[in-house]
C-alpha cells in the first residue's frame, strides 16, 4: 500500500497512456455497436494490421539504427496515415465480406456475430501465415523483409527512446506518455465533433436511433455503415501507431488481448457511447495499474474485470449509458 501511495503519479500516468490506447480501439467497438447493435469481434485484427502497417513503413524506408530523430518523426507521421489506411481498409473489408451479405438477407444478429469471429480468425491467421501465402505466388523472397518470421514477434527497426519533459510528484512525464495521451484525446474530440456536427455523423445517429425511419428519410444505410467501420478502423490505426511507439513489438495474435481489453473499456463506459469509450479506456488503464500495485501484477486482469462487474451491477448500461443515437453524442 505504501508503494502505491509513493508511486501514485507514475502508476496513474502510465495507466492513462495505456488506457488512451484502449480507448481508441474501444471507439471501433462502440461505434459499430451504436449503429448495428452488433459486437464487431474482428475489430481486434483491424488494430493488429495497423501495427504491422507501422513496421512495414519503417522497413520500406530502410530505417535502422542509423535513422536520425527527425527521420523517425517523419516516418511516424507517414506511418500514422499508413496505419489508418490499412486499418480502415481492413475494417471496410470486414463490413463488405462478413457483414453486408448477412445484413442484406436480414439474418439474425447472432449469425453476424459468428461471422465476425470467423473473420477475426481468418485475418489473424492470414497475417500469421503471410510467409506461406506470399510463397504460393512466389513473392516470399522479394518480400522477405516483410513476411519472414510470420509467427514470431516483429519489432520496429528503430528505437524510440522517451525523454523526460516535466515532473509530477516524483515521476518524470515522458514525451511518449504525452504524445500518446494527447493524440488520443485529440482524435477523440475530432471524432466526437464529426459525429455531432457533420452530415455523415447525423446519418450515423439517425440510423442508430431508428434504422427504418432513417431509411425512409433517405439516409443510405449501407453508406452509413461503411463510414462507421471506416472511422472505427482509422481510430484503431492511430491506436496501433501509438502502441508501436510505446511497445514497439507486435505479432499476428497481438490483437486478441488488446481487443478484449478495449471491448471491456467500451462496455464499462457504456457501449454505443463515444465519450463512454474514452472514459472506459482511461478508467480501465488506470485500474489495471493501481490493481497491479496494490494487489500484485498477476492480479491486474482480475482487478479490471471485477471493476467491470461492479460497474455493471450498479449501472447496467455502463458509466455513461448507451447513447450513440441520442442527441448527446
Amino acid at each position: 500500500m505504501q508503494f502505491f501511495f509513493d508511486h501514485f503519479f507514475e502508476l496513474t500516468i502510465t495507466g492513462l497512456a495505456l488506457g488512451s490506447i484502449y480507448a481508441l480501439v474501444a471507439l471501433g467497438y462502440t461505434m459499430v455497436y451504436g449503429v448495428l447493435q452488433l459486437i464487431n469481434f474482428a475489430h481486434s485484427e483491424v488494430f493488429m494490421y495497423g501495427t504491422f502497417a507501422v513496421i512495414w513503413v519503417f522497413t520500406a524506408f530502410g530505417a535502422g539504427g542509423h535513422t536520425s530523430t527527425g527521420g523517425i518523426i517523419g516516418l511516424l507521421i507517414v506511418s500514422v496515415f499508413a496505419a489508418m489506411l490499412v486499418s480502415g481498409g481492413i475494417a471496410l473489408l470486414i463490413e463488405r465480406v462478413a457483414y453486408r451479405p448477412l445484413l442484406k438477407r436480414n439474418s439474425p444478429k447472432l449469425v453476424a456475430l459468428i461471422s465476425a469471429i470467423g473473420a477475426s480468425f481468418a485475418l489473424s491467421e492470414t497475417m500469421g501465415l503471410r510467409d506461406r501465402i506470399t510463397g504460393f505466388v512466389g513473392l516470399d523472397k522479394p518480400l522477405a523483409d516483410y513476411v519472414n518470421g510470420a509467427r514470431d514477434n516483429s519489432s520496429l527497426p528503430v528505437e524510440i527512446t522517451p525523454k523526460a519533459v516535466f515532473k509530477i510528484g516524483d515521476y518524470s512525464v515522458t514525451t511518449i506518455d504525452l504524445l500518446v495521451i494527447i493524440t488520443a484525446l485529440v482524435m477523440m474530440v475530432f471524432l466526437d465533433r464529426f459525429v455531432r456536427r457533420s452530415r455523415a455523423g447525423r446519418g450515423m445517429r439517425a440510423v442508430a436511433q431508428n434504422p427504418e425511419a432513417a431509411a425512409l428519410m433517405g439516409v443510405n444505410a449501407v453508406r452509413v455503415r461503411q463510414i462507421t467501420f471506416l472511422l472505427g478502423g482509422m481510430m484503431a490505426g492511430v491506436a496501433a501507431t501509438l502502441y508501436m511507439i510505446r511497445i514497439g513489438t507486435t505479432r499476428f495474435d497481438a490483437g486478441f488481448i488488446l481487443g478484449v481489453k478495449a471491448f471491456t473499456a467500451a462496455v464499462m463506459g457504456g457501449i454505443g457511447n463515444l465519450r463512454g469509450a474514452l472514459l472506459g479506456g482511461l478508467v480501465l488503464g488506470v485500474a489495471e495499474n493501481w490493481g497491479s500495485a496494490i494487489i500484485g501484477t498477476q492480479w491486474k486482469d482480475v482487478v479490471a474485470f471485477i471493476l467491470l462487474v461492479v460497474i455493471l451491477l450498479f449501472r447496467p448500461t455502463g458509466l455513461l449509458g448507451e447513447s450513440l443515437g441520442r442527441a448527446r453524442a
Binding site: L11, T14, L18, I247, D253, A254, I257, S292, T297, Q298
Partner: peptide
Amino acid sequence: EIQQKQTDFGPTVTK
C-alpha cells in the same frame, strides 16, 4: 509475476 503475452509492464517496472 507477469503474464505471457503481456506487453505493457509499467507497474512491474515501477516496482
